[in-house]
Nucleic acid binder design. Structure first.
Lengths: 346, 346
DNA sequence: TTGAAAGCGGTACCAT
DNA sequence: ATGGTACCGCTTTCAA
């Protein structure tokens, strides 16, 4: 009872290995009692069909690659991963996670060695742009490539993206509609080499402000701070060192907005009493600090991407290969109308 | 150029398939120029060694299972996953993620069908207890089983756990040393059926308080609220409805402490002015709210577990199969000495 | 309904 | 240094 292979099971059950195989994968082709005997023998020997062998025989790998910049531990990436896994795991696929593709070295090595070549059935790209030549490299895998929040979707077989620009446009518009005059957008600077999906948000802000300039008395400004650990503190400093404190702050993401709210309190500025602030994401603690924000749902984006990938793998047609989802304004407590005749007291 | 197998590469390079195989897996056994020819042919045909075939031949699956209760999206689980992946990915292993093993249905189905049987090289169990009979089931996989923050480590081949009880003991002790009199512990109630690692924290709190009763004038209490989405609000209500507001709050985790700090402000209670509060985890935003807390590092626990798993897979001995790590007190701004002669003003 | 046998794409032993 | 060749464990015709 040392070797627990399909042969041993077949032998114990008194059938051929073909029958054992069928008992597991196409039970309807095997007679009731034969199947029972097989299953009994199998559980006696702790036998189970080997996915490796199935994979080899079928030509599939039952594995997909997920490429992301930064860590999987960021809110967005975690949600996307969980969403993908929620669909793919049950479909029999494992996710091979390639992190930090934003790092030049990793990136180079990934696209040159292409470890996924012949080793995954599909590739998912989360949240960053890939260069045309990199797309070309990826194409060599000859498997479906699905984008999730990638700046351009043209290179992908399918994609799902959130409309970052429209979302932030809407956020800024909301601030403008509230009657605010001095509006700032706080963001961490875009990576030089690597356009991320998130950078579109800044454009939405600018567009909304420019569009409103004719009809509203507004003074707007983009406060861009370096990336890195303490981008929130940098943003705080940037805001506090403005000549006049803003009425309204649009934040690139909740992870920027939440620290700002908390730390501005220590400097005597309370929202919505002294200023309105709006985030983007609706991520952890947004509800706790009562943050008005633009909600997106990366978990469901991951799940949707996975479903598209699965269809592609089965050769089924996609009714909508490239979908765009709109973030939704979630009104909570950090936005308030600026009353023109009742100036802020401090 | 349709079939891009090892034979085609061998043919184009004018060598045998053995040589192609060696060129990839044992390059030092192949002459310089031969290797070049092989690699050229390979890249021409977009060829790469198939992991499925390697897996089949080697008897390994190059896959490990990660079992967790709840979602992978929780702070702890995400960090553990990332830590595991940081080591395992480069070692050539993918992680097959089984979530929600806390759900009775999933649990039953998992341990009965045992989908991992013969399909993973190791099993990692994150943060929950498994019953003796479940361990027995798992044992049928005949692969190393590694525990991460599992209440008992005896059933595992290796484990790494954080000393939750000692950590909270220390946290409570710190509050006591600060001179606080009325100390509460806020926690979400333990799952009936499923002892989680985290439940040991409550015991640490109780032990610290009981030990101090003789020498200190303290009044302590455990405030347990139901699990679920709004456990933090429930804890808030529990704290506010105490007969006297506590001097000190020990929280089961930062996710409890952070909302408490923020929401107690709205009720006029500020830390450390009106009370001290200490968390557990040092998770996201703990630094932002300046929370004094007990730090643990689940990422590195994941990485350590992965390294142990890898050693086990190689048959190497473990110098310390079961390790315990101590959480560390991180002093920040939410704890302060209670001055006996200067009672709290409000 | 069941069995025999040919691979799937590598690896590694044994020769040369 | 390189080639020939049995497998690894399963799936899937094709026959019986």
């Amino acid at each position: 009872m040392h070797k627990k292979g399909i042969r041993e099971v077949a032998h114990i059950a008194g059938v051929s290995i073909s029958t054992v195989s069928r008992a597991f994968t196409r039970p309807e082709l095997v007679s009731e009692k034969t199947r029972e005997r097989v299953m009994e023998a199998a559980s006696m020997l702790d036998f189970n069909i080997s996915r490796s062998a199935t994979a080899l025989k079928s030509g599939q790998t039952f594995r997909v690659a997920l490429l992301m910049n930064e860590e999987v531990t960021s809110w967005f990436n975690t949600q996307v991963f969980a969403g993908l896994n929620s669909v793919l795991h049950d479909a029999g696929y494992d996710i091979s996670l390639f992190q930090h593709i934003d790092d030049a070295k990793n990136r180079e090595s990934f696209f040159v060695n292409l470890p996924v070549l012949r080793n995954v059935d599909a590739v998912f790209v989360a949240s960053f742009a890939i260069e045309p030549n990199e797309v070309e490299q990826l194409r060599r895998t000859h498997v479906p490539i699905i984008g999730i929040n990638t700046p351009s979707s043209s290179a992908f077989d399918a994609s799902i993206s959130i409309d970052d620009e429209a979302g932030m446009f809407r956020a800024a518009q909301h601030m403008i509609n509230l009657g605010h005059h001095k509006i700032v957008y706080t963001c961490s600077a875009a990576e030089e080499s690597l356009e991320a999906s998130i950078d579109a948000r800044g454009r939405g802000f600018v567009r909304a402000c420019e569009a409103a300039e004719g009809t509203h008395d507004i003074d707007w400004k983009v406060l861009s701070v370096p990336r890195g650990r303490d981008f929130a503190d940098a943003a705080l400093a940037a805001v506090l060192s403005e000549e006049t404190f803003p009425d309204a702050i649009c934040c690139q993401m909740d992870m920027m907005a939440i620290p700002l709210i908390i730390k501005l309190q220590r400097h005597g500025y309370y929202s919505p009493r002294d200023y309105s602030i709006i985030g983007f994401d609706d991520s952890a603690y947004a509800d706790t600090v009562d943050l008005t924000t633009m909600r997106q749902d990366p978990f469901s984006m991951g799940a949707t991407a996975a479903k598209k990938g699965l269809k592609l793998l089965r050769g089924e047609p996609l009714d909508e290969p490239h979908s765009i989802v709109e973030p939704r304004l979630v009104l909570r407590g950090t936005d308030a109308r600026l009353e023109p005749d009742r100036p802020l007291e401090r």
